[in-house]
């Protein structure tokens, strides 16, 4: 922190507290992460890179990317629309909408998956109709994408609502009195003001979309090369005692986490710089 902070604790207390914090973090964070990489490279770098060329691994990576590519933009649009409505306007049912946005955060992911089984499964509400029309949702990529969208939809909206609320509506009103249309006011005034919050929300949303296990596990059916995402693929490999390959796949998710953390750091630093 800044140099003008008054130091009231003796040096040894400061040092040992900081040391304790690092020790704790090392035990619960650094050691597990390091062990993943150790496990991944146990059979050498050649095996590590080889394990991604496996068709099942390729398919899992592909499905994870496709899922994120669909879920994140959709939640981006939804999140902006919802937070714009909630932060800038007053309407009936606003609190209900706010509660609904929080719903996926408050229910267990397994239940989020179950919802789609109950809706689109063979015994589900739309099941018979889907069967007669030859459409497959559950135990197929559509259900994986749907449940991921469901689980990740609060992230962008939750990030934007406080940002938009704190900025009020005066700048938009000013834009409109200057002759801007509603869309111009949004595009030229609202969006530039929320860009960092938006990016932050997208980063979190993306991390969850790629890492989601529970909900996806319920609807996937674990069909190799077809409905396995990376987290599910890791579990399958692990259960088959194929530890090196499991850790190799897991290391990809760790990379994603590290990239996310790095991006988050950069965004936060930029925000701090701009608000000063």
């Amino acid at each position: 922190m800044s140099a003008d902070n008054k130091r009231t604790e003796p040096l040894w207390i400061q040092r040992s507290l900081i040391g304790l914090a690092f020790l704790y973090l090392g035990l619960v964070l650094f050691v597990p992460v390091a062990s993943i990489f150790a496990g991944a490279f146990r059979k050498g770098a050649a095996f590590y890179f080889q394990s991604f060329l496996n068709p099942d691994a390729k398919s899992a990576i592909c499905l994870t990317l496709v899922t994120a590519l669909v879920a994140v933009p959709l939640n981006l649009i939804f999140g902006i629309a919802a937070s714009w409505a909630i932060a800038k306007f007053d309407f009936r049912g606003k609190n209900i909408l706010l509660t609904l946005i929080d719903l996926p955060l408050s229910v267990s992911p397994v239940i989020s998956g179950m919802i789609f089984i109950l809706l689109f499964g063979a015994q589900g509400i739309f099941g018979p109709w889907l069967v007669t029309h030859g459409l497959k949702i559950v135990f197929a990529p559509p259900a994986i994408i749907l449940s991921t969208i469901f689980v990740t939809f609060p992230f962008v909206a939750r990030e934007l609502i406080p940002v938009m609320k704190s900025q009020g509506t005066e700048e938009e009103e000013a834009a409109i009195t200057l002759g801007a249309s509603g869309f111009q006011a949004f595009w030229r005034v609202t969006l530039p003001n929320i860009k960092w919050g938006l990016l932050y929300g997208v980063i979190l949303c993306n991390a969850r979309a790629m890492g989601e296990f529970g909900a996806v596990s319920v609807v996937s059916g674990h069909i190799r090369g077809y409905t396995n995402t990376l987290p599910l693929y890791v579990e399958i490999l692990y259960n088959e005692y194929n530890f090196a390959a499991a850790f190799a796949a897991a290391s990809l998710l760790v990379f994603l986490a590290l990239v996310t953390l790095g991006a988050k750091q950069i965004v936060e630093a930029r925000v701090q710089k701009e608000t000063q």
Binding site: E170, E171, E173, A174, A175, T177, R188, V189, P192, N193
Partner: peptide
């Protein structure tokens, strides 16, 4: 109409 707001409402990013 030209409207001047109490807290100016200047576009902070411009």
């Amino acid at each position: 109409v030209g409207f001047v707001f109490q807290h100016y409402a200047l576009f902070r990013h411009l």
